[in-house]
Design a protein around this nucleic acid. Structure first.
Length: 430
RNA sequence: UCUUCGGUAGCUCAGUUGGUCAGAGCGGGUGACUGUUAAUCACUAGGUCGUAGGUUCAAAUCCUACCCGGAGAGCCA
């Protein structure tokens, strides 16, 4: 009977089962082989003693290389040394395909080599754990919004306009006219919110910035809720509820994986609303108290963000940024024209910005003014301006970089480990 | 684009003031071992020292240029 490793329970003890998978590692000791098997759901050690399998099979096992695909049948027993661990006393070992010399050894490798072999690196314990946590987070993102009555609203990936006009986009040819890969689904999301009330966009986004840091990918996934009649306070409440929910779900589903990647999950256990809220101006004061000569009006660099977020053990929400440094669509604060009703959420432990959000400019004339200030071509925004002509309402939302959230929750050093095949400045392979 | 660090065996790296400096561990191969957990032990095969010039009696080592990569800045999620 074929059983997946993670489904083995006490009920299987002393019963014969079959595992279909790959040889993860092998240790031999004269007349006994220890075969560490993986099948995608977990790892189990099979024992093949010469007296159990016979001399012929025993000799065959000697030849099986790391990552060869195998089907192993045997009787389930409890591990003699470890509690809650099962073993398989093998009776039959069938070789499906003998693997050639496997490039990834048990010792350490450099990042470049591992990324060249990403298609194989994904088979390692650590990478499998990260992929499972990523999956939990993606599922939690969807569940969070689905449970609150949001509608999934897919924005186009090919667009004719450079959305925010700030970042560099990937250009492609669209039947003779230039088209760009989407850098954000937000503007389309606003149209969705005016139709469906509460929506979220969840898809890949593309940025052709020549960013060579461990916080950047050229292709990454972003989840962007957009809500009609939601103002800045509500956006911040939504963001803190959302992030708390993601953390809670990972703590609930992935304790084993967090242990594999050696995440100190005590640092995650306190993540719950309310999150601290500080204004941009207050953040500048924090920097100045630290002796940094920071002028009001500038944007925070990564080291600045680390200092600010270091003051809190929860994500901190920095709101009301200077108008000049933020995108054209952000609504100016009616009480202070110099700032916009935007918010950045900075993750703890120096992980930086994981969410950027704002209340949107809902007044047609003000929006036109801002488009002019930013020297953006009005024509391509006509449809967007229509939203302000036909029943405009206060509204807003935010975008969360999925990989940045995974990086923070997993406590990783590199964003590139959080996506199956990372796309970076120097990496399009594999 | 700028700053900075690096490129030596399949992989991770060591290599001192230029002179037995072509090395180790892992992985591969051969052998030993019935409770191993990156198993261990013995033996063994692997290299145009990123590329091209230059200095020198002598270059992995010093100089110049170039190529490739990492980290960071800017920009952002």
């Amino acid at each position: 009977m074929h059983v997946y490793i993670d489904k083995i329970t006490n009920e299987h003890v002393d019963k014969e089962i079959t595992i279909k998978g790959w040889l993860y590692n092998k240790r031999s000791s004269g007349k006994i082989h220890f075969l560490e098997l993986r099948d995608g759901t977990g790892l189990i050690q099979a024992i093949a003693g010469i007296t159990d399998v016979g001399e012929e099979i025993f000799e065959e096992i000697k030849k099986i290389t790391q990552e060869s695909s195998v089907i192993v049948t045997g009787k389930v027993s409890k591990h003699p040394k470890k509690e809650n661990f099962y073993e398989l006393v093998a009776t039959k070992v069938e070789l499906v395909s003998l693997a050639q010399e496997y490039p990834i050894s048990k010792k350490e490798h450099g990042p470049d080599f591992l990324l060249d072999n990403r298609h194989l690196w994904l088979r390692s314990k650590r990478q499998m754990a990260i992929m499972r946590i990523r999956h939990t987070i993606v599922k939690a993102c969807r569940d969070f919004f689905d449970n609150r009555g949001y509608t999934l609203f897919d924005s186009p990936i090919l667009t004719g306009n450079a959305c925010e006009g700030t970042t560099t986009l990937f250009e492609t040819d669209y039947f003779g006219q230039p088209a760009y890969l989407s850098q954000s689904g937000q503007l389309y999301g606003e149209a969705g919110a005016f139709a469906l009330g509460k929506i979220y966009v969840f898809g890949p986004t593309f940025r052709a910035e020549k960013s060579k840091t461990r916080r950047h990918l050229t292709e990454f996934w972003m989840i962007e809720p957009e809500v009609a009649y939601l103002e800045l306070e509500g956006i911040m409440e939504l963001a803190e509820d959302f992030l708390s929910y993601l953390v809670e779900r990972v703590l609930d589903k992935n304790k084993v994986e967090l242990e594999i990647i050696e995440r100190d999950f005590k640092k995650l256990e306190g993540i719950a609303p309310p999150f601290p809220r500080i204004s941009y101006t207050e953040a500048v004061e924090i920097l100045r108290k630290e002796g940094i000569n920071f002028e009001w009006g500038g944007d925070f660099g990564a080291p600045d963000e680390t200092i600010i977020s270091g003051k809190f053990d929860k994500p901190v929400m920095v709101h009301r940024f200077p108008t000049e440094i933020k995108a054209f669509y952000m609504k100016r604060d009616p009480k202070n024209e110099k700032v916009v009703l935007g918010v950045d959420v900075l993750a703890p432990e120096g992980y930086g910005e994981i969410i950027g959000g704002a209340q949107r400019e809902d007044n047609l004339d003000f929006l036109l003014e801002r488009i002019e200030e930013h020297k953006l071509p009005r024509e391509i925004f006509e449809w967007y301006l229509d939203l302000r002509k036909y029943g405009s309402v206060p509204h807003g939302g935010f975008g969360m970089g999925l990989e940045r959230a995974v990086t923070w929750i997993c406590g990783l050093q590199h964003l590139r480990e959080t996506i199956p095949f990372p796309r970076m400045l120097q990496r399009l392979y594999p």
